[in-house]
Design a protein around this nucleic acid. Sequence first.
DNA 1: CCATAAATTAACCAAATGGTTAACAAAGCT
DNA 2: AGCTTTGTTAACCATTTGGTTAATTTATGG
Lengths: 205, 205
Amino acid sequence: MAKSKKDNNTEQQILNAARQVFLEKGLSGARMQDIADKAEINKAMLHYYFKNKELLFETIFQETAGKLFPHFDKLMDSDLNFFDKIRSIVSSYIEMVSQNPYLPLFVISELNKNPEIGLKHFFEKQRPGFVKKFKESIEESINSGLILPINPIHLIINMFSMCAFPFMAKPMLKIITGIEEEQFNILMEQRKVLVAEFIINSIKK
Amino acid sequence: MAKSKKDNNTEQQILNAARQVFLEKGLSGARMQDIADKAEINKAMLHYYFKNKELLFETIFQETAGKLFPHFDKLMDSDLNFFDKIRSIVSSYIEMVSQNPYLPLFVISELNKNPEIGLKHFFEKQRPGFVKKFKESIEESINSGLILPINPIHLIINMFSMCAFPFMAKPMLKIITGIEEEQFNILMEQRKVLVAEFIINSIKK
DNA sequence: CCATAAATTAACCAAATGGTTAACAAAGCT
DNA sequence: AGCTTTGTTAACCATTTGGTTAATTTATGG
């Protein structure tokens, strides 16, 4: 069956275009016209499918923020040992960010300019999930003498810092270290194991 | 002596106001009117002292980016041992960011939206400085058997990740961990020593 | 003290930008 | 087919926004 004129296709084109533009330019930097152009539709269509810029943005933000901490819940429930959980999270997280390089900076940046949107949307629900489980897992590992004592929050922060930051700071890192695109990708690939071992090395007894 | 009407005061008021607004909202989010209001002057004065928005922004960006890697050059030249250099850099860097919480996110964010401004301005000069020295210092420490082998770039990335990221991600961290302002500040204070020890613990032989 | 330059303001302007309208085309339905 | 709903477009509108102008005030220096 040939695809009918709508097929709800337009809405997807808009969302794809909006995702690209918003992630790259942010809310204030994005232009509705740019989104329309990239979606190859009339600007009026944007307002036909999404009431206004804010609503369109929130749709994208919500979708995007939802990808920030993917399947970590399940991962924490798995029967992997503590170190393997770290290895698994680090590796899959860096892979995810490699695939969506703008994602962390976008969410963090918009959240800074307007902290309310975080509360309003998805975070509330996801919060307790994996962070709580991770904390418990860390505490258990400390109590069982597997790792040195450390405030779980610091450990979590350290992990996500080393996973996400390099991608956010990529243009800066390229300048101050003098590396190029290809070399950067190699480094990020290495970090999938390096970061986990760096952490484990630091906390193991 | 009473302060005369100008005193080149106005220019400073503008710069202070522009700094606040740009750091908080970014280039595209900043409004010239907001800057004028905050500086308590007429909007036309902005264009009297600074040709246009771009020029004013670049002035602020240059000044701000210049603070990103402060006196690390001297620090690397000091006769501190390698571990103490790490302790010193981490501590002073976190202190600097505590004092200028918007700084890293601002520079990184604007650099992402417009990578050219980095090259144009200050980075070129500062680049070789401390990064090169730091790399040499790391290599030397590896060769002398003080620390385990690691690609110096990774070590540098890890260090700045753990120093800067928490401040950039503050609103997100507050949401997913449930901590409040006060607790956040305590954690960041702790990180001045914690991060350094975390690193040292991981690489020491 | 006056003439000149520097600083400041209010009013204005043009372009950019988010958003709307009204007419038209396509699909769906009976 | 004919009527209604949905999708799409071009033209238009109102506001925001960066920027300018011309007139006014304030300093400065001979």
